[in-house]
Simulated scan of single mutants.
Amino acid sequence: MVTPPPPVDLTGWGQVDHSARRATNRTTLRGASGAAVDVELVRCAAGRLREAYPVSEHDVEVRVGAASAGGVEPAALTALLGDLVQAVLASDPECRRVVLAIPEGDLEVLAAAEDAGFRYVVDVDLPDEAVSLAVAEPAWVTAIDMDLDHVPT
């Protein structure tokens, strides 16, 4: 059974509402500007990305949307995504990837995500849309053993 991602501590973001069910945590946050932002953290193994790539049990998809019309400003999105990555990785030390599915071709959101530490990986077709996957990974996942002449035992 897939468990929901643990609650995250987002210092600097006022939490307006929070709920958890099955493999999802939903939170509405209020930033310094006063704008409300909906954040959903979903275990990839139980969410819409479960067949999009070889998921790990602890991978978390981040979904961000404005609670009101108008979207999230790029600078605010970058700040929020950066804070979310740090909070998710701190709350779940076994998390290998924090994944952001961006509508394919949305270069503004991709740039904001890259500024927050994500890197573009691949475009995938989901049943309802085509998305670009960007990931943020902890250092222990991306570390390279430079001793290429030694086979680990």
Rank of each mutant, 00 (worst) to 15 (best):
P54K: 10
A113Y: 05
Q86W: 04
D83Y: 05
V60C: 01
P138C: 07
A66H: 10
P152H: 08
A36S: 03
R96F: 13
V151H: 13
D38K: 10
P6E: 06
A45L: 03
P127E: 14
L41I: 02
S132P: 05
V151F: 10
S33N: 10
E114Q: 06
R30N: 09
V109D: 05
V99A: 07
D92S: 13
S19V: 06
V124Q: 15
A111S: 14
A116L: 04
I144K: 05
A139K: 14
G82M: 07
G12H: 03
A101S: 15
L100W: 01
E61Q: 15
W140Q: 05
C95G: 13
V141F: 01
D38T: 12
S56F: 12
A52L: 04
V88L: 05
P93G: 04
G14H: 12
V131T: 12
V135N: 03
P127N: 15
L77G: 11
G70L: 11
A143L: 13
D92I: 05
F118R: 08
V16F: 02
A79H: 12
P74Y: 02
S56G: 15
A90S: 12
E104S: 15
D59G: 13
A143D: 15
A20R: 11
A52M: 06
D38I: 12
E51N: 02
T3P: 07
A87F: 02
I144T: 09
E94C: 11
V72G: 07
P54E: 06
S132F: 03
V8R: 06
A76Y: 00
Y53T: 12
V122H: 10
L133F: 04
G34D: 02
A130N: 14
N25H: 11
V64T: 08
V16E: 03
L10Y: 05
R22M: 11
D145W: 00
T153C: 07
G82L: 06
I102K: 08
P54W: 07
V135I: 09
L81I: 04
L41D: 01
A36P: 00
G14E: 12
A113E: 07
G82C: 06
D123C: 02
A87R: 02
Q15N: 03
P5A: 15
D9C: 15
S68A: 13
R30K: 14
R22C: 06
S33K: 06
A112I: 03
A101D: 14
P5E: 15
P7D: 13
R26E: 09
R63S: 09
A136C: 03
A36C: 00
L80T: 04
E61C: 09
A35Q: 10
L29F: 03
R96G: 13
D147S: 08
L89E: 04
A76K: 00
Q15C: 05
L110T: 01
M146P: 02
V141C: 03
V64A: 07
P127W: 15
W13M: 04
C95L: 11
L77Y: 12
A139I: 15
R96I: 10
R50S: 13
P6R: 10
T24A: 07
A23T: 11
D83G: 10
V62Y: 01
A79N: 11
G34P: 01
G14C: 09
A46D: 15
